[in-house]
Design a protein around this nucleic acid. Structure first.
Lengths: 240, 240
DNA sequence: CAGTGGTCTAGACCACCGC
DNA sequence: CGGTGGTCTAGACCACTGC
């Protein structure tokens, strides 16, 4: 039966798409709908709650539940955490990666030391990558991970070239589920930024991210410089 | 009794803060906890679900529920929709507003026409505002609303100077609950951007926002240029 | 296997809205 | 007032994990 409430949610979504339910209409009462679907009222409500959060239904206490106009769909949203490579592909780009360097450092003084909760001298793995799109530089990334976590999973010998996220999962059993991200506009004189300023209409945005695993352990610090003439950055903001 | 589940949520949060529950510990089983709180299991679970979403608990199916290290708290997050004025105050700034203009226009050809779902020629109210912080320009905003929605609520005669959001609620009964926001880095030659480039270390970020009411009607289009040396922009990204 | 969380149920009572 | 959604309950059964 796999998730009655999800099945109901999908059913309602489909009814909206096929206009069996029209924008502005009021749904029958929850008791009625639950009966129609042959489920309990709470189960039906679980589906409604999800649809309400997605902005597809408007629930008015004491009045009813209404179908509202779907928001225009929008290119993938920043709140959904994905690897930088996935963002490139989501933008419909052919990725031609070029890894610039992989090195080991002793953590000292850098911002990422504190962010990753490391003491001076602890070792970190640093990967710098330049990604190109149609032969032009498009993204420059610096990724820093504590060596204590990764072990030897990132030996230079490895033919590692894919998603950092996947590699962390497979080789280290580390699942990144969350990131705190600061969105910044770098100065033009920033050397990383300059690598991307290849056209007059190019501007560059910087994502400064600290990634956490399921238990909120900081696992990966990353700095991404992304060309804004290639990538779009959307978020959905909600009033609490 | 006002929300048993919320009371339980707050109780657990407090127990974590006061170290009655410690990071890494496993909670007693749901049945046990529900008994302790004198509520049903579902009610207790509702509280747990909220805390899980906030990243304060880790629930492992078949294993147990664990207290995890709280994420470092972070300046207010972009996903929480607030008015620009509120963002200024949240940044701990004294706001010295200066309204530059309020005018009526016939909608033609501009980007906001399409965004607000207007036809050519329909009237819009346009408010441009410069906000200063410590005497320096900090934010430049352009706000566009369909005149059909606002009516005469924005007559130039009004001594309107506060939050646009509040004014829309009180005078027009319009509640903004959501916004689709594009985050952009403007070109240096953008005239609005230039108004803010008063220091060598200043960079400027642009928020291009379409605000919706409860029924997903586009209500307000806004363009905000914000100095990144004054404001920080954070989001929390989650993997789905 | 025993113990955990995940889902669902039938029914109760309350809070809100419009008439 | 009647009808709506909001919350809670006691209990059932299932799915997953670790021993």
């Amino acid at each position: 039966m796999s998730q009655k409430s999800l099945f109901i949610k999908a059913s309602i979504e489909q009814m909206i798409e096929t206009q069996k339910l029209r924008v502005g209409e009021k749904l029958p009462s929850e008791i009625e709908m639950a009966k129609q679907f042959g489920v309990s009222r709470e189960t039906f409500r679980a589906a409604v709650k999800l649809l309400e959060q997605e902005g597809k239904l408007l629930v008015k206490h004491g009045v009813g539940t209404f179908i509202i106009k779907p928001l225009p769909s929008v290119p993938s949203s920043l709140e959904k955490l994905s690897s930088t490579g996935a963002m490139v592909r989501a933008a419909g780009m052919d990725e031609g990666e070029r890894r610039d360097s992989l090195r080991m450092e002793s953590c000292a003084d850098k911002e990422w030391c504190g962010q990753l909760g490391l003491k001076e001298g602890e070792k970190v793995v640093v990967i710098e990558r330049l990604r190109t799109v149609n032969g032009e530089p498009a993204v420059y990334s610096v990724n820093v991970m504590p060596h204590a976590l990764t072990g030897e999973a990132f030996n230079a010998a490895d033919n590692f070239s894919g998603s950092l996220f996947q590699h962390l999962e497979k080789s280290c059993g580390i699942y990144i589920v969350r990131a705190h991200t600061e969105i910044r506009v770098p100065l033009h004189i920033d050397p990383y930024c300059q690598k991307l300023l290849v056209r007059p209409e190019t501007t560059v945005l910087q994502l400064k991210q600290l990634h956490y695993d399921e238990a909120n352990r900081p696992v990966l610090y990353s700095l991404d410089y992304m060309r804004n003439d290639i990538f779009q950055f959307w978020i959905q903001r909600k009033r609490e």
